[in-house]
């Protein structure tokens, strides 16, 4: 990377010194050349974030002094704010993909950050902060699922043991309803649906099954319609 690019990434908007020590009260390296020796966040990432003068791990180290003097607590809070601004939007966006509502996602994100603040001194081992943060968030999510499993009869019927985090995020009720509806299709239609949902085109399916192209199209379309109606009525019954 040329020096110009390096400066672009370091100094948002192309501004030059005076910027040092001005962000959240954290001491930034005075000599820009020092920056190349700071550990990168993740070697394989190529964002400007990599070149932040303070790596996540260094910021976490500052946070470990939160219980000491007032000045150190202030530094710890500033460092935590930098970490927050760096990772909070991504964490919240991730939680929104895994939660049933925005409110729940915001709630879990807040609790994750609160725990991170409280637990960094004791539990953060100095490696891959975002991974550690996501692990806290996923544990909180699993706790939520477990609570729901205990209080919801329908979830109890379908939910697997939650030792597998990925399984927990699959809507087991939706899966079961669709599976039941699928079993009501004849073999040929089931096969067409499976092939289509494995990414094959109608043309490829017609070649694989030696069935006319239009027939494949029509049968898939009708099967989809049937499954939508079937799942909808199953959902109404459950509700």
């Amino acid at each position: 990377m040329g020096q110009g690019m390096l400066l672009d990434c370091l100094l948002p908007g192309g501004s030059l010194p005076g910027f040092q020590e001005s962000i959240c009260g954290i001491s930034w390296p005075e000599n820009l050349l020092e920056i190349r020796f700071y550990p990168l966040y993740r070697n394989e990432m190529s964002t400007c974030e990599n070149l932040d003068p303070q790596s996540d791990e260094m910021l976490a180290d500052l946070i470990k002094g939160q219980d000491e003097t007032l000045a150190q607590k202030q530094k710890a809070e500033n460092a935590f704010n930098v970490l927050y601004e760096r990772h909070a939007p991504i964490l919240l966006a991730f939680l929104k993909t895994r939660c049933h509502s925005n409110l729940q996602a915001v709630d879990i994100a807040q609790e994750t950050w609160l725990r991170a603040w409280q637990k960094i001194p004791e539990y953060f081992d100095g490696i891959h902060f975002r991974g550690w943060l996501f692990q806290i968030a996923k544990n909180l999510l699993l706790d939520e699922f477990r609570k729901k499993k205990m209080t919801s009869l329908s979830a109890e019927m379908y939910a697997p043991e939650l030792h597998d985090a990925t399984q927990a995020f699959i809507d087991q009720e939706e899966k079961q309803q669709l599976q039941d509806c699928m079993s009501q299709l004849d073999d040929m239609r089931q096969q067409i649906v499976r092939l289509r949902l494995s990414g094959q085109s109608h043309r490829e399916i017609s070649e694989t099954l030696q069935v006319d192209y239009t027939t494949v199209q029509t049968r898939f379309h009708r099967a989809k319609q049937f499954l939508e109606d079937c799942v909808q009525s199953a959902q109404k019954e459950t509700a």
């Binding site: 699959i170 939706e174 899966k175 309803q177 669709l178 499976r194 949902l197």
Partner: peptide, 10 residues
């Protein structure tokens, strides 16, 4: 997550 549930069922 919903797409994954549907694909898992199929």
């Amino acid at each position: 997550t919903s797409v994954v549930s549907q694909l898992s069922a199929v």
